[in-house]
């Protein structure tokens, strides 16, 4: 029997689909003979009592989730998301630099240093990528700090905001698509495949803020993993291989029949009736991985 702590925050229960998925994890674990308890941020001193930690709260090196992950890691527990994956995935500069190094198919990307943020640089970027371009704060999640700019003034406005917390930001060619492929990967294997559709008239999958009632969120179309394009799955696995061996959600755009990686997320959303719709075994597979 493995004792699993599932680290969550209150907002993980705000949507019934997410709360449902958490119950599915618990049921799967218990039916496999394991213990599965939810652990909140005031329960960190309990970590040593467990054998494995499964993090469902939003991860970032600056959040409690990282403290949980690293503490569990130091104590020799099995942990998803592991601290290294959190560090790489939470920072877009970090992950794109790795994609560059290992030649993962990706959206054309540049990195902008706060100290080299001049008129000339902006002009050169527009020349290279055309207009508009996409600016991202390295720490963005839920599309919160991803913005499109088409002139120097808005470039400066957005960049200035993103530079407040990070001395580097990400600049990308704008590559719109009707949907993002989302490939769930666990331990170098494809776990599930979906399409995250863009809401009508939008270029981002969602302005989805957990815990806030106000968001627009595109539809999720689930596919059987065996029916998804082979090349798509290869690209997803390649992207994850430069990050680690844990649980990831890879966002991929299909452009002229080619696949380019938008990003690898650790801690991918799993909502009941969405990601699991055509791949019901994902709960068991993740629990099995945690208890191996």
């Amino acid at each position: 029997m493995t004792r699993i702590a599932c680290f969550v925050e209150k907002y993980n229960f705000s949507y019934s689909e997410e709360a449902g998925a958490l119950q599915n994890f618990k049921r799967a674990a218990e039916s496999m003979g394991h213990e599965f308890n939810f652990m909140f941020r005031n329960g960190l001193s309990e970590i040593p009592k467990y054998d494995a930690v499964f993090i469902r709260a939003t991860t970032d090196p600056l959040y409690t989730a990282y403290v949980v992950s690293k503490t569990a890691w130091e104590l020799g527990l099995k942990v998803v998301d592991d601290p290294e994956s959190i560090r790489v995935c939470a920072n877009k500069v970090h992950q794109y630099r790795l994609f560059e190094k290992y030649d993962v198919p990706r959206i054309p990307t540049l990195f902008l240093n706060k100290e080299e943020f001049h008129h000339r640089t902006i002009e050169e970027i527009f020349e290279l990528f055309g207009k508009p371009i996409v600016l991202k704060a390295p720490y963005t999640s839920f599309s919160k700090y991803v913005e499109k700019v088409a002139c120097e003034t808005s470039f400066r406005d957005v960049a200035k905001r993103f530079f407040r917390r990070s001395d580097f930001i990400v600049v990308q060619k704008f590559m719109p698509s009707r949907f993002d492929w989302r490939v769930g990967v666990l331990n170098n294997q494809v776990l599930y495949v979906c399409k995250y559709m863009m809401p009508k008239g939008k270029w981002k999958h969602g302005v989805k803020r957990r815990g806030k009632p106000s968001f627009i969120w595109g539809r999720t179309v689930s596919l059987k993993r065996d029916n998804a394009p082979q090349r798509l799955k290869e690209v997803a696995l390649k992207a994850c291989s430069v990050v680690g061996k844990g649980l990831y959600g890879v966002d991929i755009k299909e452009v002229n029949g080619d696949y380019v990686v938008v990003e690898v997320n650790d801690n991918p959303s799993i909502y009941s009736g969405y990601e699991d719709y055509r791949n019901k075994d994902i709960y068991e597979k993740i629990i099995k991985y945690l208890t191996e």
Binding site: P61, V67, K70, T71, L75, E84, R87
Partner: peptide
């Protein structure tokens, strides 16, 4: 970078 993150995150500093 790992040490830079960990040393400034107090609970991790203390654990390690």
């Amino acid at each position: 970078t790992e040490n830079a993150v960990d040393a400034y995150r107090l609970p991790i500093l203390l654990v390690r």
